[in-house]
C-alpha cells in the first residue's frame, strides 16, 4: 500500500514538473492557442466569404484542420520538446537518478499533454459550428483519445531521439507533414485520401468529415485496426529505442 502510494507520488511529481515546464514554455504552449485561434479565424473568414452559415464542406475543412493540427502539434511537439528541454538543461539525468522509473517518467511526461490534446479536440469540435445532432460523442471520444495517445507516444519517440529542442523540431516536422498534411490534403487527391485512411489522423479526419457532412459516423473495422495498430507500433518503436539507450544516450 505504502509502496503504491510512493509510486503514485513519484508519477505525480513527474507530471507536476512537466506541467510547470510545459506551461512556462511559450513556444510549446503557442500550439493549442494557435489551433483554437485558427479555427475561430477561419470561421470568421469563411463566414464573411459565404455571408452566413458555413456550408458543411467548409465546416469539415475547419474541423479536420483544427483537430489534425492539435493532435500533431500538441502531441509530437509538446511531449518531444519537453524531453529535449530536459536533456538540454541536464535535468533528465537528475530526474532519472532520483528513483523515478522509466515507466513513471513515461506516464508522467504524457499525462498533461494528453489531457490537453483531448480537451482542445473537444473545444475545436464545439467552436467549429458542426451540428451536434450528427456528432457521435462516444465515437469522437474513443477516436480522439486513442489518436491523442498515439501522438503523445510518438512525441516520446521524438524526445528520446532528440538531443536538444532544435533537434526535436527537426525530428518532429517530417512526422507532422505525414500525419497532419496527408489527411488535410486528402480532400484534394484521391491517392492521398486512400493513404490517409491508413493513418490515425486520417481516421479522425474521416470521422470529423462525417460530422460536418451531417452523416452518421460508424467506427469501421479498418479504423479500429489502424488506431490499434499504430498505437502498438508507436509503443514498440518507443520500447526498442528505450531498451537501446534509455531516455538519454551516454
Amino acid at each position: 500500500m505504502g509502496n503504491t502510494m510512493g509510486n503514485m507520488n513519484k508519477l505525480f511529481a513527474v507530471a507536476r514538473i512537466k506541467w510547470i515546464c510545459i506551461s512556462r514554455n511559450a513556444s510549446v504552449m503557442l500550439g493549442p492557442i494557435l489551433v483554437v485561434g485558427m479555427v475561430l479565424m477561419y470561421k470568421v473568414l469563411y463566414g464573411s466569404m459565404v455571408g452566413g452559415e458555413l456550408p458543411p464542406i467548409l465546416t469539415g475543412v475547419i474541423l479536420s484542420l483544427g483537430i489534425s493540427m492539435n493532435i500533431c502539434m500538441d502531441g509530437f511537439m509538446m511531449v518531444g520538446m519537453a524531453i529535449a528541454e530536459e536533456k538540454e538543461k541536464h535535468t533528465l539525468r537528475v530526474l532519472m537518478t532520483s528513483s523515478i522509473t522509466g515507466g513513471q517518467y513515461f506516464v508522467g511526461s504524457i499525462l498533461f499533454p494528453f489531457v490537453l490534446t483531448v480537451a482542445v479536440n473537444f473545444v475545436v469540435l464545439l467552436i467549429s459550428q458542426v451540428s451536434m445532432e450528427y456528432v457521435s460523442m462516444p465515437a469522437f471520444f474513443l477516436v480522439s483519445v486513442t489518436a491523442s495517445l498515439i501522438s503523445c507516444v510518438l512525441g516520446m519517440v521524438v524526445g528520446i531521439c532528440a538531443s536538444n529542442q532544435m533537434n526535436a523540431s527537426l525530428i518532429a516536422y517530417p512526422l507532422l507533414m505525414v500525419f497532419m498534411m496527408i489527411p488535410i490534403l486528402g480532400n484534394l487527391s484521391e491517392t492521398l485520401r486512400k493513404v490517409s485512411g491508413f493513418l490515425f489522423t486520417g481516421v479522425l479526419t474521416e470521422m470529423t468529415n462525417c460530422f460536418a457532412n451531417e452523416t452518421r459516423y460508424m467506427v469501421k473495422p479498418l479504423d479500429v485496426a489502424v488506431l490499434a495498430g499504430e498505437l502498438v507500433i508507436s509503443v514498440l518503436v518507443f520500447l526498442i529505442l528505450y531498451k537501446k539507450n534509455g531516455y538519454e544516450k551516454d
Binding site: 514538473i17 510547470i20 515546464c21 512556462r24 514554455n25 530536459e86 538543461k89 541536464h90 535535468t91 539525468r93 537528475v94 537518478t97
Partner: peptide, 12 residues
C-alpha cells in the same frame, strides 16, 4: 548524485 552538469529547473 551530483555531477558537474547536474541541472536545475530554471523556470521553477
Amino acid at each position: 548524485v551530483v555531477s558537474d552538469n547536474s541541472g536545475i529547473y530554471e523556470k521553477m
